[in-house]
Amino acid sequence: MNKPDHDHHHHGSATHSLLPSDPALRVKAIETILLEKGLVDPDALDALIDTFQNKVGPRNGAQAVAKAWTDPEFKAWLLDDASAALSSLGFTGMQGEHMVAVENTEAVHNMVVCTLCSCYPWPVLGLPPQWYKSEAYRSRVVIEPRAVLEEFGVSLPEGTEIRVWDSTAEIRYLVIPMQLEGTEGLNEAELAERVSRDSMVGAAL
């Protein structure tokens, strides 16, 4: 209350470098050991980080979904062999995992989870959002998918079946959402703008 407002000096003054957080220091320790042993290459680490920060992300998945909406042959290929169809767009690699595409219809709504940890289709969606990694989502969506969907603001008709797909290190899922009403006249690039990340995980329409 009576604190003078200039009384917020830092510990030990600002003469030394800002000390990183405890986990950041532990990561530096790991990195130092592995670099010394020649087990990781800093350039390779930087390249990988750059890929995840700048090159992969939900725009990739949106492009694939928009193509599926406008090109029935591509959609059939995507449903039949998603790894190959996505790879034709340049979306591949990471762990060489097997991709599976599942299509939402009036009768079936698909949702994706990884109950074990947080396996996610990186080449098409990038890294998962925090809610996907949360224990709350991972444990609840398999038990009460309809309630979880309601919390995302999605209410499905009673008769719609909800299928929940559990990702693994080897199999990753991409949901092809239903094309949004009123977007029939749009071209592929315009449609890609309308596809949200969450819809490709089944947490939105």
């Binding site: 990183p20 957080s21 986990p23 950041a24 990561v27 790991i30 990195e31 592995l34 990781v40 680490l45 930087d46 990988l48 980080i49 995840f52 920060q53 992300g57 939900p58 990038g126 890294l127 959002p129 925090q130 809610w131 949360s134 709350a136 989502y137 979880v148 919390e151 995302f152 603001g153 949200s196 990340r197 969450d198 939105a204």
Partner: peptide, 26 residues
């Protein structure tokens, strides 16, 4: 979970802290 859920994507960085990126890449 949806309360803390930013449902659009573009502004969300892949890693919120540099050490997340490092430990992931390693």
């Amino acid at each position: 979970m949806p309360e803390q859920l930013p449902s659009q994507v573009s502004a969300e960085p892949a890693f919120s802290e540099p050490w997340h990126a490092q430990v992931f890449a390693i």
